[in-house]
Design a protein around this nucleic acid. Sequence first.
DNA 1: TTCATTATTTAGACAAATCTAAAAATTTAT
DNA 2: ATAAATTTTTAGATTTGTCTAAATAATGAA
Lengths: 217, 217
Amino acid sequence: MQSYTEENYLKIIYHLSEISNPVLTNAIAERIQTKAASVTDMIKKLSDKELVNYVKYQGVTLTEKGKTTAINIVRKHRLWEVFLVDKLNFKWDEVHDVAEELEHIQSNLLVERLDEFLDFPRVDPHGDPIPDKNGNFAELAFIKLSKLKPTDKGTITGVSEHSSTFLKHLEKLGLTLGKRIEIIEVLEFDGSVELLVESQKTNISREVAKHILITKN
Amino acid sequence: MQSYTEENYLKIIYHLSEISNPVLTNAIAERIQTKAASVTDMIKKLSDKELVNYVKYQGVTLTEKGKTTAINIVRKHRLWEVFLVDKLNFKWDEVHDVAEELEHIQSNLLVERLDEFLDFPRVDPHGDPIPDKNGNFAELAFIKLSKLKPTDKGTITGVSEHSSTFLKHLEKLGLTLGKRIEIIEVLEFDGSVELLVESQKTNISREVAKHILITKN
DNA sequence: TTCATTATTTAGACAAATCTAAAAATTTAT
DNA sequence: ATAAATTTTTAGATTTGTCTAAATAATGAA
C-alpha cells in the first residue's frame, strides 16, 4: 500500500513519462509544487519499494508495479470526473481539484461499482481515455482534423508529421497533445479550419489540419 | 482548515460526547485505536485551535466551532453512505469503511450537489439522521405510513414489526430504511397504499403500511 | 577543453502525528 | 485517610514528508 503522497508522485511520473522518458527530478518538482531535494528523497523511497527505476542524475522510469499503480489512480481520477460532470452537474473545468482528492479513496469495490454506475465510460469530460480495470486503454480511432466538420469536438491524440518546425508551430498555437478542440468553421476557398482550443479561437491551414490526429468524443 | 487526523478526532469526540460529557482521554484512545499519550498531544493541539475545551485530567468538550466541524463530517459520512447503498448497490454493512475515507473530501459544492442528487435524504442506511447544511437535525417524528395522504413525502425511518418474514417482504419491495417514498393513492375499499419508491410504483396492504414508520419531510 | 551555468544530490533541520517509558494526578479500596 | 490501582500527562524518540544551503555532477558555450 502506498501513501497519499507516494500515489501522487507515481501519477505525476506516469503523466510526465508520456512526454519524456526518463523523467527528470526538476520536472517532477515543478509539477508537484515542491523542491528538487524533496523529489530526490521521495524517489529514493519509491525506488526502495521497487515502484520506480532510479539512476542518479539520470531520472526515473516506472517499474511495471509502479505503472500499474499509477494507471489505477488515473482510472479513478477520470471515473470520478465523469461522475461529477454527468451525475452532479459539475462543469468540466470545476472537477479537477475534487477528483484529485477522490482518486485516493481505497476500495476496489467502489471503483468497479462506480464504473458500472457510469455505464463504463471510455473517456473523461476532458476527452482523456479511461483505462479499464486491467489497465488497458481502449483503442481510440484516430481521425485527421481535416476530416472534421463544424461543431465536431475531439481531443488531439497525435500528429502524423514530426518535424520540429511543425511541432513548434503547434506548440505556439496551443495545439498540443491532449488538448480538447472544437471545430467552428471550415473555410471553403482554402480548406483552412477555424477552431476553439481552451476557449481561444485559432485558424490553421488545411496542410496543418491534415497532420493533426483527433479522437472524436 | 483541519487535517485529516484532526477531523477524525473531532468526529470521535462528537460521537462520544453523546454518551458522556466531557469525553475522557482513554475513551478517545480506545475508539481511535491509538495510545492515550497521542490523544493528549492531539487534544492540546485542538485546544490551541479553539476546537475543544480542555481541562487537564478532566477531559474535553467541543466548542461551537468544533461542533460545527464535527457535524459537517458526520453529514458527509452519512450522505456518502446513502450514495453507496442507493446508487452503487452496496449493502448497508459494507459502507462504513469507505464512507470513513469519503467524509474527508473537501468541497462544499460536492456535498451540496450530492445531497441534491440523493434527493435530500434525512437518514442514512443505518437509520441515523443526516444533518442539513446548517448542521440542524430534522425533527424525526415517526408516523405510520398508513396515516399519510396522497402527495405526502417522507423517509422510511423504522418498522414496528420485526419478524424476518416482514422484513424480507419489505426488502423485496425496496422499502428499506432510509428510502424516500411518496404516496400516490390510498385505496378506499381495502386501505391499501400505492406509493413511489425510487421512481417505482408499488402497492402495499394496509397491514404492511401500519408497520412502516415514516418521517415526513 | 576549460569555464560557467544549470540540474541534482547530500546533509542537516523541521513540523506533524505517533510511540514508549516514566512521572504525576485521580480514583478506588481498605 | 492512606495505600493501591488506574488514568492521564510529560519527556524524549521515531517516522513521514518537507525544507534550506552547500556540494557535486552534467551540460553548454567560448
